[in-house]
């Protein structure tokens, strides 16, 4: 697998050594996973929700929001109103 590209998607920076180590570990793991090919899943619907719930709704009623101070409390960088982040390069 292309560890570097995948890490890029996940916004994780890896050094060469890490890329090599992860590459070989994950290739082992993925080749173990190949056993799934043995299972005949023709016509089987993929299961994404194990509990067969449906149509779970909430009424459109406003409830109090968090206080702004609580919203900003955990922020690594902020001013009185906003959370600050490094420059976002457009695009």
């Amino acid at each position: 697998m292309d560890v570097k590209y995948t890490a890029e998607l996940a916004k994780i920076r890896l050094n060469k050594e890490q890329v090599d180590k992860l590459g070989s570990e994950l290739n082992d793991i993925l080749s173990f996973f190949k056993n799934l090919k043995e299972v005949d899943t023709k016509g089987v619907e993929p299961l994404s929700h194990v509990l067969a719930l449906k149509n779970v709704f909430r009424d459109d009623i406003v409830k109090p929001s968090l206080k702004k101070a609580d919203v900003l409390k955990n922020a690594p960088q902020k001013d009185t109103h906003y959370i600050k982040v490094p420059r976002v390069i457009k695009g």
């Binding site: 968090l66 919203v71 900003l72 959370i83």
Partner: peptide, 17 residues
């Protein structure tokens, strides 16, 4: 979530977990 959608409020005042 149950936060209001009103426009133009104080920044970060209409949010919840």
């Amino acid at each position: 979530c149950s936060c209001s959608t009103a426009f133009g409020k104080e920044p970060n005042s209409q949010t919840c977990p």
